[in-house]
Each structure stands twice: as C-alpha cells, then as structure tokens.
C-alpha cells in the first residue's frame, strides 16, 4: 500500500525519464512514426493504444533502439540514446523489455534466463544472482518452475518469466510490447495481475496493449496513436468516456461495442 502511494506521488511530481522529441521514422516509403513528442515521467504508467499498423510497437522498440529512428531524438534520464556499441548495451540494461512472443532463451532453464543478464552484464556473483532470481520468480508466481525449459511452460507462465528476466536488471523503465496479444484468454489475467502490481509498486512503464481494462485500472495516461502519429493523449477516464478525436471515437466504438 505504501508502495502504491509512493508510486502515485512520484507520478504526480516525477521528473521526465523518457523523452521523445520530434521523432520520425520511415520504413521505405511508409512513414511509420510522424513527429512524435512524448514525455514519460518517473513512476508514470503510460498505455499506448491504437489500431494495428499505427506505429505503437515501433515506438516502443525505438525507445531501447531495437528500431532506429530517422529524425528527432530520444533520451533516457537526460541522456540521448547512444549509437551502436558498448554504451548502447549499457543503456539497454537500464530498460526492461517484454515482447509479444516472450522470447525466452530456448536453450536455457527458467532460472538461467533470469540470471543471464545479472551475471554477464552486471557481473553479479552467480549465487547472489540466483537468490535474487528465485525471489523474482516467486514474486511472479513461477518459482517452482525454475529448473524447467521455456517450452515446458504455458504462455502465461513464460511471459511472467520474461517480466522477471527484465526486472532482474533493475531497469529504470519497463517497456511492454503487446505482452498479452499472444496469450490464450485465460492466461491474460495472470500476466496483467503481475503488471498491475508493478504499476502499483511505482515502476515507470510504457505499455503497448489492447487490454482496455488494464489501461483503465493501471494507467496514469493513455496515448492513442493512429497512422504513426499521437492522435490523442489523456487520462484513462477522460479518454474512454470522452474521446476528442474522431479516430479515437471510431476506434473505441469498434472495440468497446462487445
């Protein structure tokens, strides 16, 4: 509860952590990101929604430079994103990423998946890394699966391991790229529960998702993207009850009808 309160205050007063400034990107002729300006403050939970092909995933991946941008700048904690090389690797260690398709290391056990980063990147002692990893796996509810391989786990369990793997690096911000889109319906909630806990704990999060329920309960702000541009930005309540742009009205009309 205290954690939740802390998170809420820092969201209100937090300084800018992730800043996108006039970001443009093209895939060939396709203008996938159009003049994106977005600031995410420390402790804030920003949910990015929008129709397919609107550029939300590209935006998310650009923040740890899995996608390069063609114009503008992105900075993390006041530092611009470095070019390729050691510095970029260091920056990525500070940014947790959760993928749609989990991407757990197929040849490593669950425990090894979580300890790889701390041991190889943070140069942590193996025993200490394992203790910490087990605590994280317990926290996301898959502690008893530590010795198994990813393929032996359900999708929901794999995604929770992926969250633990990202958290093991003690990231400043967590990026979620459609974390529940590849999951069976009954497994979505177990992943969302973990994410809601994280949000309450004050983690800075940028979440690309189609889960409107999550946006309503956990988001401080909703960013609606259409055709590569930010079409609307608002609090979840305002956005869902009173969307201003036509694109948002149209989108919500389609998905909230059922």
């Amino acid at each position: 509860m205290t954690l939740a309160a802390e998170g809420a205050t820092s969201a209100a007063t937090g300084e800018p952590l992730v800043v996108l400034d006039h970001v443009d990107k093209w895939f060939g002729d396709l203008h996938v990101l159009r003049d994106i300006n977005l600031t995410v403050n420390r402790g804030e939970v920003v949910v990015v929604i929008g129709p397919s092909g609107s550029g939300k995933s590209t935006l998310c991946r650009a923040i740890n430079r899995l996608e390069t941008i063609d114009k503008g700048s992105i900075s993390l904690d006041g530092e611009p994103l470095p070019q390729e090389g050691k510095e970029l690797a260091n920056l990525r260690a500070e940014v947790g990423m959760v993928f749609q398709s989990f991407n757990l290391f197929a040849h490593k056990t669950i425990l090894e998946n979580v300890t790889l980063g701390p041991i190889k990147v943070r140069k942590q002692d193996k025993a200490q890394a394992e203790t910490e990893a087990r605590a994280l796996l317990d926290r996301v509810g898959v502690g008893h699966q530590a010795a198994k391989y990813p393929a032996q786990l359900s999708g929901g369990q794999q995604q929770r391991v992926a969250i633990a793997r990202a958290l093991a690096m003690h990231p400043k911000v967590m990026l979620f790229d459609e974390p529940t889109s590849a999951l069976d319906p009954e497994m979505i909630s177990e992943v969302l529960d973990v994410m809601v806990d994280l949000a309450k704990g004050g983690m800075t999060m940028i979440v690309v998702t189609h889960e409107m329920g999550f946006a309503r309960t956990a988001a401080d702000r909703v960013v609606f993207m259409a055709d590569g541009a930010v079409a609307e930005e608002n609090t979840p309540d305002e956005f869902f009850t009173n969307p201003r742009s036509d694109r948002a009205k149209d989108f919500l009309g389609k998905i909230l009808r059922h």
Partner: peptide, 12 residues
C-alpha cells in the same frame, strides 16, 4: 526474437 531479447538485457 532470441537475439533481440539478448540485446534488450544489455548484452553486447
């Protein structure tokens, strides 16, 4: 995705 995940945890 395997290489992307490895890059995302900060491996060079």
């Amino acid at each position: 995705g395997q290489a992307e995940a490895a890059r995302a945890i900060g491996l060079p």
